[in-house]
């Protein structure tokens, strides 16, 4: 199968299937397995990786070279979902999955995301909704890997469109969870060259110990030299319609503010729904957690 074959086939693209199979039956499906361009990790002369879209989440977490080069990505991959989902789920599927809003997933409701013209969640259960207001839909974006990739300035190679920033895959449009059009296929994610001395951390705030979609999640990449932070990339998820990078937190860190002060900078973005006021404290708390963990952690990247 070539990319052209699948791009022109009628149906919904299926990678690992972990999202599609748990939603209401749709189809027909077009299996992406068997398209060689979508698989594998290749390393370029500058030391950067190109990660095929069908690379499983589990492989992102355990590939020794990826772990050394992109520790935040590997930690995020290891921290999401459950072992079985990580074995089946893929990088591309994670980036392009649909959101987990109970209203969107319930056949009893219609909303912006499935052809309707309203958001029943707004006036209903908002406990798990966004805290950063980003348009009519209040479903947090579900992709943890997208969040972390924002912090790497990674780009996506898309068949039918070309190369674009991972951030460009998403917007606040309430009718969709990503911007790819029918027939466009995420082929791979291109990483930058590794950052020497990167210290990284990922954390998701949840009620239980495992196996829960994040109330708030955050990833941090830091480089510390002479007790000063000389590089920072801080990204968060579970709080907005898209994964977010927080330049205000990063610049505060580079300016020498304390970790807590820097983390607190995220608060200004928040405009809680009726029941998500708690996510303000949880957001700054989770950011602080990953900043502390990254500072205290061993340097991983070469």
């Amino acid at each position: 199968m070539t990319l052209h074959d699948v791009a022109t086939a009628a149906g919904v693209f299926r990678a690992g299937g972990t999202d599609l199979m748990s939603r209401a039956p749709g189809g027909p499906y077009v299996d992406l397995h068997g398209v060689p361009e979508l698989g594998g990790i290749t390393w370029r002369p500058d030391g950067s990786a190109v990660i095929g879209a069908l690379t499983t989440v589990a492989d992102l977490a355990r590939d020794v070279r990826l772990r050394a080069a992109y520790p935040a990505l590997a930690l995020t991959a290891a921290g999401l979902a459950t072992p079985q989902i990580r074995e089946a789920g893929t990088l591309g599927g994670n980036l392009l999955q649909r959101n987990r809003c109970a209203y969107y997933r319930s056949p009893a409701f219609s909303c912006h995301q499935d052809g309707g013209d309203s958001c029943p969640a707004r006036d209903g259960l908002t406990l798990y909704a966004t805290v950063v207001d980003s348009g009519p839909c209040v479903a947090p974006h579900p992709s943890s890997l997208a969040m972390t990739l924002l912090g790497y300035d990674a780009t996506a190679e898309v068949y039918g469109r070309g190369e674009l920033e991972v951030a460009g895959l998403y917007d606040d449009d309430p009718t969709r969870d990503h911007r790819l059009a029918r027939g466009e296929i995420l082929v791979s994610v291109r990483m930058p060259p590794p950052t020497p001395g990167e210290r990284a951390a990922y954390h998701r705030a949840i009620a239980r110990s495992e196996a829960e979609w994040p109330l708030v999640e955050a990833a941090a990449r830091l480089v510390v030299a002479d007790d000063a932070i000389v590089f920072a990339a801080v990204t968060v998820g579970g709080v907005a319609r898209t994964p977010l990078r927080l330049p205000e937190v990063e610049s505060a860190l580079l300016a020498g503010e304390s970790l807590a002060e820097a983390a607190g900078r995220a608060e200004a973005r928040c405009a809680p729904q009726a029941q998500t006021g708690y996510k303000v404290a949880l957001l700054t708390g989770t950011i602080l957690h990953v900043l502390e963990a990254a500072v205290e952690g061993e340097k991983v990247a070469a």
């Binding site: 009893a108 259960l125 009620a207 239980r208 196996a211």
Partner: peptide
């Protein structure tokens, strides 16, 4: 339960959280 329609929202074992 959705307060407007009375529809149960916690209809899977992700949304209805039991101990692991």
């Amino acid at each position: 339960v959705d307060p407007s329609t009375g529809t149960v929202l916690t209809t899977n074992l992700e949304d209805y959280r039991i101990p692991g």
